[in-house]
Simulated assay, not measured.
Amino acid sequence: MQVLVRDNNVDQALRVLKKKMQREGVFREMKMRRNFEKPSERRAREQAEAVRRYRKVLRKRMEREGY
């Protein structure tokens, strides 16, 4: 990941970096890796995330098609 610093404006570059990291999911990944997660818990979490994503897609599709 790369962020350009323009006109020695480090604060703005730091904000851009944080936003990029947030979008990539780096902070969530770091939080998840703080503690050990059992494989069964990992599978359950990933399944729940997949269901959440699928429902979100359905919700967006329904909203777009006007049901």
Rank of each mutant, 00 (worst) to 15 (best):
A48F: 09
M32N: 13
K60T: 04
R64F: 07
G66C: 03
S40R: 11
K19Q: 14
A48T: 05
M62D: 06
K38V: 08
Q12M: 15
V51K: 02
E29I: 13
R15Q: 15
Y54W: 04
R45E: 02
K18H: 07
K56G: 10
E24M: 07
R43I: 06
K20Q: 08
R52E: 10
N35M: 13
R64I: 06
V10T: 12
G25K: 00
Y67H: 08
A50H: 04
R23H: 05
R15H: 12
A50M: 00
V5M: 00
R59N: 02
E49G: 04
V10P: 00
V26I: 11
A44C: 04
F36V: 01
E24Y: 06
Y67K: 05
L17K: 11
V10K: 13
K31E: 15
R23F: 02
V26R: 06
E41N: 12
E49N: 05
E65T: 07
K19R: 12
V26C: 04
R23M: 07
N9G: 00
R53T: 00
K31Y: 14
A50D: 00
M21P: 01
K31I: 13
N9T: 00
V16E: 13
K38G: 12
V16Y: 02
F36N: 11
A13S: 05
M21S: 09
F36Y: 14
R34K: 14
R64V: 06
V10W: 09
S40M: 09
K60L: 01
F27K: 00
Q22L: 10
R45N: 03
L4E: 15
R52M: 07
V5L: 03
Q2C: 08
E29D: 14
E63R: 08
K20I: 05
M21L: 13
M1R: 07
L17M: 14
R34Y: 04
A50R: 05
N35Q: 13
Q12D: 15
V10F: 11
N35D: 13
R59I: 02
D7T: 10
A13W: 03
K31W: 11
E63H: 08
A13I: 01
Q22P: 02
R28Y: 03
F27D: 02
V3C: 05
R45T: 04
Q12F: 14
M21R: 05
R45Y: 03
G25S: 00
E65P: 05
Y67G: 01
E63D: 11
R28L: 07
R15G: 15
R6H: 14
A50K: 05
P39A: 04
Q47M: 09
F27P: 02
K60H: 02
A48P: 02
M21A: 12
N8Q: 14
Q47N: 11
N8E: 13
N35S: 14
K56H: 11
L17W: 04
R61L: 11
R34C: 06
F36T: 05
Q2H: 10
M21Q: 10
Y54A: 00
L4M: 12
V16H: 01
M62E: 07
K60C: 01
N8L: 14
A44Y: 10
R59Y: 00
S40D: 13
E49M: 07
A44F: 08
F27Q: 05
V51Q: 01
M62N: 08
G25M: 01
R34M: 09
Q47A: 14
R6Y: 14
K18V: 07
D7M: 09
A50W: 01
A44M: 09
V26W: 09
